[in-house]
Write a protein that binds this DNA or RNA. Structure first.
Lengths: 151, 151
DNA sequence: GTAATTGCAAATACTTTGCCACGTA
DNA sequence: TACGTGGCAAAGTATTTGCAATTAC
């Protein structure tokens, strides 16, 4: 499986197009999974995605179906996992033009996608120089206690 | 003779002292686990720690023993887990005066502890202000391809 | 019609716990 | 002696796979 070209937009339609170009089929359940991912503003577990898709498709997709779909999308760099220090994996869409750093409340577990300019673009370049690494990417999560849980 | 903990150091002796102060017992196997952790320069899985301790203690500690020991240490903030995007957990000592950001090769999986000044201390403060979060900490990992794997 | 997809069940992987004999202080 | 520890086995949780029936194109 090769990596698909990324169009200049990132929507259900464009992602479906990428999947179709890979020879994959766009089924009702897959569309429901995509809709679930596009509507969420936080990373989701496979189970949460399954439940979200169930509401949209009317019928619950098998867990293995969700698992395989997300795996496919991960290999195509359409989603990525987020390290939330929990026992199960969390998935999030990978819009190539966006940044995915998070702020997590240690008490209520809410996850906020941080919308500030990447604080470590320079560091990445510096590391590439200093250690000779290529294709650098990063994973950055902040943990703390949110205002509601502080009060 | 009980040596007082020196807050300005982080050694097998000082960590053993902390454990002893908690009412825990310093056994041969625990010492072997500590030695293993202190000799490693990269995060380790429970299995790797178990194997390292086996070499030192002469006998292999049970997996559950290693698991419980690392759990205890984690609660005492003597070790922490590192998110390497792999299926098992990786543990690393938590010297309170050090910083633990990593550079990981996606091909050979080597892990390098980055010894640069923290690139996001300011960001942390900014987030605390902007979102009202408290007790901020972070987890930062860089992924790329190392020089050997590039060639 | 052909090949991809799905559900089901089973297998695997990793983590966690209960129990009791054992060792440390 | 008192209580923390360690080994064993089993349970728990999350992930992954095999296969036959089904569906998309």
């Amino acid at each position: 499986m090769h990596m698909a070209n990324q169009p200049s937009q990132f929507t259900i339609e464009s992602v479906s197009g990428i999947l179709r170009d890979e020879g994959l089929r766009i089924t009702r359940k897959r569309t429901a999974i995509l809709e679930t991912l596009f509507e969420s503003d936080a990373p989701m577990t496979l189970q949460e995605i399954q439940q979200g898709a169930a509401k949209r498709a009317g019928t619950t997709p098998d867990f293995a179906t969700v698992f395989r779909m997300l795996n496919l999308m991960e290999q195509l760099h359409l989603v990525h996992k987020v390290s939330l220090q929990r026992s199960s994996s969390y998935y999030e869409l990978s819009d190539p033009r966006k940044h995915y750093d998070h702020l997590v409340c240690k008490k209520c577990e809410q996850v906020i996608l941080i919308d500030i300019p990447c604080p470590i673009g320079d560091t990445e370049k510096r590391l590439a120089r200093q250690y000779g690494f290529r294709d650098l990417s990063h994973s950055l999560e902040f943990f703390g206690v949110c205002p509601a849980c502080t009060a």
